[in-house]
């Protein structure tokens, strides 16, 4: 599995470090004292059952939720992320599990939502935005042609590519992908894998969530497993097998470590 993986340099400061993060919704402790970090050029996978707290954890990093306790450090400095816009200021881009697209707007309006290109008069420059959208979509998904229809008229995979385009267009340093391949066919899944490798080669840090253990073993450098809001453990993929990961997800412990 871990054939030709580049060694990640983890001697410096991590690109992002989430330390002892906790958040509760009413009585539910959705995330319970979880710490993860991501180094430049690294893909860190988050695995776990439905409801384990994966999306909640990354939504804290994305500024969508405010944590109850814990700290976020970016490039060795303590970060104060209060809103999605705040996260963007730290060059954190997110592909949400729900894609978070405005269905009634077209691809370019969605891609630039909140960050519109404006003319000298301060009006939104739709032609310029569509031109940019055509450029990036040509790179990500050359088959994409539906530029002037609302995204509600797009297929799941096409919507996904709009969401991905939005995350990679704006010079991200950290990209969060919450189940980016869930709605995709084989071919499109391959395309997302290529994008992830490309971003990784550019030195970005990526947090990837997926239920596909095999895919995670192939794409990630390390995987963190969550269960009931808590972190079961973080492993280098070359040190574990798919079965180890599965038992971490299901049993909440790593049999190898238990044995050692």
């Amino acid at each position: 599995m871990a054939e030709t993986k580049q060694k990640i340099d983890r001697s410096g400061t991590p690109l992002v470090a989430m330390k002892n993060i906790s958040i509760a919704f009413g009585g539910v402790q959705a995330v319970d004292d979880v710490s993860i970090d991501v180094y430049p050029g690294e893909v860190v996978g988050l695995l776990g059952h439905n409801g384990a707290g994966k999306s909640t954890l990354i939504k804290i990093l994305a500024g969508a939720y405010r944590m109850d306790s814990g700290e976020i450090w970016i490039n060795g400095e303590k970060a104060d992320i209060r809103s999605p816009a705040g996260a963007r200021d730290y060059n954190i881009e997110t592909i949400y599990q729900t894609l978070a697209l405005a269905d009634n707007l077209d691809a370019s309006a969605n891609l630039f939502l909140g960050r519109e290109i404006t003319t000298s008069l301060g009006l939104v420059d739709d032609s310029a935005m569509e031109a940019e959208t055509r450029k990036i979509m040509h790179r990500l998904n050359p088959n994409f042609k539906k530029f002037s229809v609302p995204v509600s008229a797009l297929s799941g995979g096409q919507r996904q590519s709009v969401a991905i385009a939005r995350a990679v267009y704006f010079d991200a340093k950290i990209v969060i992908m919450d189940e980016p391949t869930a709605a995709l066919g084989v071919h499109e899944t391959e395309m997302v894998a290529e994008i992830i490798k490309e971003l990784k080669a550019q030195g970005l840090g990526i947090v990837l969530i997926s239920h596909d253990t095999r895919e995670m073993m192939a794409l990630c450098d390390r995987v963190s497993v969550m269960k009931n809001g808590a972190l079961v453990g973080t492993e280098h993929v070359e040190d574990v097998t798919e079965d180890d990961i599965l038992s971490m997800i299901i049993l909440g412990k790593n049999p190898k470590r238990e044995a050692a």
Binding site: L99, L101, N104, L105, L113, G114
Partner: peptide
């Protein structure tokens, strides 16, 4: 633009920093 985005999907609008 934000009026229409919010009407189309309030959550998406908020996550886009609106």
């Amino acid at each position: 633009r934000y009026i229409f985005a919010t009407g189309g999907n309030p959550d998406a609008a908020e996550l886009s920093g609106i």
